Simulated scan of single mutants.
Amino acid sequence: MNPTVVLVHGAWHGSWCWGELIPALEAHGLPVATVDLPSSGPDVTALGDLDADVAALTAVLDAVGGPKILLGHSYGGLPVTQAAAGRQDVVHLVYVCAFMLDAGVSLIEAAGGEPPSWWRPSEDGTWMTADRPEEVFYSDCDPAVAAAAVPQLQPQSLSSCRQPLSAAAWETIPSTYVVADRDPELPQFVQEGMATGRATRVVHIDAGHSPFLSRPGELAAIVAACAEVTAAPAQAD
Results as ranks from 00 to 15, higher is better:
W118E: 04
A83E: 12
L37D: 05
L50V: 02
A83L: 11
A144W: 09
L101N: 06
S106F: 12
P67T: 11
L78Y: 10
G41N: 07
D102E: 15
A56S: 05
E123A: 13
V60Q: 11
A83N: 10
P79W: 07
L71Q: 11
D102H: 13
D140I: 00
P116E: 07
D62E: 15
V60T: 13
L61W: 12
S74L: 07
W118Q: 03
K68E: 09
V105E: 10
A56L: 03
F99R: 00
D140A: 04
L50T: 01
E134L: 11
D89H: 09
L78D: 09
V136P: 01
V64E: 15
W119G: 00
A111N: 10
G112H: 10
E109P: 00
G48C: 10
D102L: 08
D53T: 02
L50R: 04
L47C: 02
E134Y: 09
Y95G: 00
A56F: 05
V94F: 14
G29Q: 11
A85W: 12
V90K: 04
T126F: 04
D142C: 03
A84E: 06
A52R: 12
V54E: 07
P42R: 15
G66L: 11
D131Y: 01
Q82V: 07
A52K: 08
A63E: 15
G76Q: 08
D89E: 15
D51R: 12
S39G: 14
S122E: 12
S122D: 13
A55D: 14
D49Y: 08
L50N: 04
A46M: 11
A59F: 06
E109N: 00
D36F: 07
I69L: 11
L101S: 08
Q88Y: 03
T34A: 09
T34L: 10
D89K: 07
D89V: 04
V90F: 09
E109F: 02
V32H: 08
V96H: 08
D142E: 14
V60D: 11
L57W: 14
L47Q: 03
L93C: 07
P115M: 12
A110T: 03
M128K: 03
M128R: 05
V60R: 09
L78W: 09
A111T: 01
D124T: 02
A103Y: 11
A33G: 01
V44Q: 11
V35P: 00
T45A: 13
G65K: 12
D36K: 02
